[in-house]
């Protein structure tokens, strides 16, 4: 076989294997989605959003408390994580851009993104649950905030450093002090990208179970009281899916569908925004 023929053959073999793997991956993904939708739809309906879970063994009930709790926890996490993350990311790309410390912080954030979330959960358990004598919503929100923080730091840093320096120089040349350059020009230019990062981080937080198991845990009743356990969809799936009660298993499927839909929606919105931005 000539060299070229050999290369052509190995090329097609490699190509074939990659396509096959991609097909398996996508197939599995669609299988999961199909299963979630099929099972989830049977318990999908207005009761799912309007009612709290029924006691074990009794039919009916919904996930109102878990849905609201999930939103509450995610929103609290973003409320703490987004401003902190955006400011930290901005520091890295602006004031601290030539500091060695900034490079270290960036690298640490990169690592922090891949810390297993159960470790984060255990850490928060040690500092915000154990000392305060019980599971509580603040701890859950804190765990999620720790998870979103590095994502937002890094997105902000990369989005703001993509803003060309010539734009900053133009603002400086008008006599703008640095903070006005950042707020009026850099953030404005990077806003789409930062917002996308926040959506993707929110999707990540909304899909987490492990850190909530240790922190906000679960409760059948809805309350806005963050110093008590706060229910969430993901922990509900974990508990109900493994329960012996049929009605709870059905609710778990409903919860799975709700979480999947929410996370997909956030992700797709984020990706579409990235796409729109790149086309411009």
């Amino acid at each position: 076989m000539s060299g070229i023929a050999k290369r052509k053959l190995s090329n097609s073999v490699a190509m074939g294997i990659s396509v096959l793997c991609a097909a398996i991956g996508l197939g599995l993904l669609f299988l999961i989605l199909y299963d979630v939708v099929r099972h989830g739809l049977s318990s999908f309906g207005w009761t799912l959003f309007a009612k709290d879970p029924a006691p074990p063994g009794m039919a009916g009930g919904g996930l109102r408390s878990a849905i609201l709790g999930q939103i509450l926890l995610t929103a609290a996490a973003l409320l703490a994580g987004v401003p902190t993350g955006v400011l930290a990311g901005t520091f890295l790309s602006e004031y601290g851009r030539s500091l060695k410390l900034s490079k270290i912080i960036s690298a640490v954030s990169d690592m922090a993104v891949s810390i297993p979330s159960i470790v984060t959960g255990a850490f928060v358990y040690a500092i915000l649950v154990k000392p305060f004598g019980g599971f509580n919503g603040w701890a859950g929100a804190a765990a999620l905030a720790i998870i979103v923080l590095p994502v937002i730091v890094r997105t902000t840093e990369s989005m703001t450093s993509m803003v060309p320096w010539s734009l900053r120089e133009a603002a400086f040349a008008l006599g703008a002090p640095y903070h006005r350059v950042i707020v009026g020009v850099v953030w404005r230019a990077a806003a789409g990208g930062i917002f996308t990062g926040v959506l993707l981080a929110a999707a990540r937080a909304a899909g987490e179970t492990a850190p909530l198991l240790f922190t906000s845990f679960n409760s059948g009743h809805f309350s806005l009281n963050m110093s008590r356990p706060v229910p969430s969809l993901t922990v509900t799936i974990y508990q109900y899916a493994a329960s012996p009660y049929e009605s709870w298993v059905a609710l778990a499927w409903g919860a799975a569908l709700a979480v999947t839909a929410a996370v997909l929606l956030l992700n797709v919105t984020g990706r579409v925004m990235i796409g729109l931005k790149q086309r411009r």
């Binding site: 734009l167 120089e169 133009a170 040349a173 008008l174 009026g184 020009v185 404005r188 230019a189």
Partner: peptide
């Protein structure tokens, strides 16, 4: 100083 000496660059720099 920069307020009294304006600068126009090679490439246009409109703000977004």
């Amino acid at each position: 100083l920069r307020s009294s000496l304006g600068m126009v660059f090679q490439k246009p720099t409109p703000f977004p």
